[in-house]
Nucleic acid binder design. Structure first.
Lengths: 213, 213
DNA sequence: GTCTATAAATGGATAGAC
DNA sequence: GTCTATCCATTTATAGAC
């Protein structure tokens, strides 16, 4: 099997260290040390820490963009929606270092700011598309403005839920936190179910069935 | 009039700089430079940047704690609740640097972690107390678990809304962002109004009347 | 591609004079 | 209380050998 490229090893290790300790706390020397390569070698592959961050963001952007685009292009099956939300949470969790110290990172890598803003908007559009399709199929009913507001709140929830939970009680596993995050979104949609409790109860059952794999 | 103490000037300037540029981007040398005092002088008053951060947090904690405790001790008048939410947002906005790079700050000032977690819990308890009093007065109706879930989401919303908006579109005034944040909370509570749209419409009108001072 | 060695810059921190 | 001067540690970044 082919040897893993040093460039990729740098990215992988940097991501792990950033997620663990926070990007600001990790120096290029430390990254090189963990990889057992010289700082000079690291600088041969990346001009500096900023370059590493930008490269990691490109990965994140690519993956999240793919995930978020799917439901816009073609409506999901009704109970696939919860799985979808779950996947978004996992993707964000994999690159969570980015959400800590966002101000600092965007300050030092200004080119990422518009790209990050675009991802947020895409989250919101996707949420809106999903709600829309559920509305058209008769599951949900919205008054004027309610759907847009809900979509915005869901986008914010997707973005910051993991951080909120990490602050409230830092000792929980990622799986549990994500499950609670998905559940909270379901609770937030529940009031808009057309036929009240019945349809919601069904979805709830399907969700717990699907996630106990 | 008495001359403003250097200690207080340091705190005030540090807060301003931290909010503007992010705590990680501001050095003690820079703070001293802006204040036109020597680094040595700064170190006479504070052992280092951590000490400044801890002192600023103490201010924040004190103020927010007072604000959040009021509705728990005694229910507010029905339309004071929106004003209350507004005040919480403003308080958070004044110390927003803290919410950027939270990971980094809590890493370096571990004693703040439990205190910060306690503030989050207090936010949630306060939201719950307000919802509870509205429920008892007959304005709101909750099924089992709905009130707790809503309170948690409101706490998260209070904590991260400003950051979310700053990322989505960074060029808006704090006032507008806060108004939208309050409105989003109202929208989130709306589905639980007992008599549907009427009571909510009234509150909406009162809110816009009260905030156009 | 990778290493060693080292430069250059920055930021944190202290001693001692005023 | 405040300043000057200085030191130490860390980090980024580069030059040149292998």
């Amino acid at each position: 099997m082919a040897k893993v490229k040093t460039r990729d090893r740098i990215l992988k290790t940097s991501l792990a260290l950033f997620n663990q300790e926070g990007e600001a706390q990790v120096s290029t020397v430390e990254i090189a040390g963990v990889l057992d390569i010289s700082p000079g070698n690291l600088y041969y592959h990346f001009k500096g820490k900023e370059a590493i961050i930008v490269a990691l963001f490109a990965e994140f952007e690519e993956e999240l963009r793919q995930v978020l685009s799917a439901p816009i292009q073609r409506p999901l099956q009704i109970d696939d929606n919860w799985v979808f939300v779950y996947i978004v949470f996992e993707e964000i969790n994999d690159f969570r270092f980015f959400y800590y110290n966002l101000t600092g990172i965007l300050e030092r890598c200004p080119e990422l700011r518009p790209r990050f803003a675009r991802l947020l908007r895409l989250k919101e559009e996707t949420a809106n598309a999903i709600l829309s399709s559920l509305e058209q199929e008769g599951y949900l009913t919205f008054a004027a403005g309610e759907r847009d507001g809900l979509a915005a709140r869901i986008a914010a929830h997707l973005t910051f839920w993991l951080q909120f939970e990490a602050l409230r009680q830092g000792d929980r596993g990622a799986r549990d936190v994500i499950n609670d995050g998905v559940y909270a979104i379901m609770m937030q949609i529940a009031p808009y179910f057309t036929d009240g409790k019945t349809a919601f109860a069904e979805l709830l059952r399907d969700y717990f069935a699907s996630q106990s794999r």
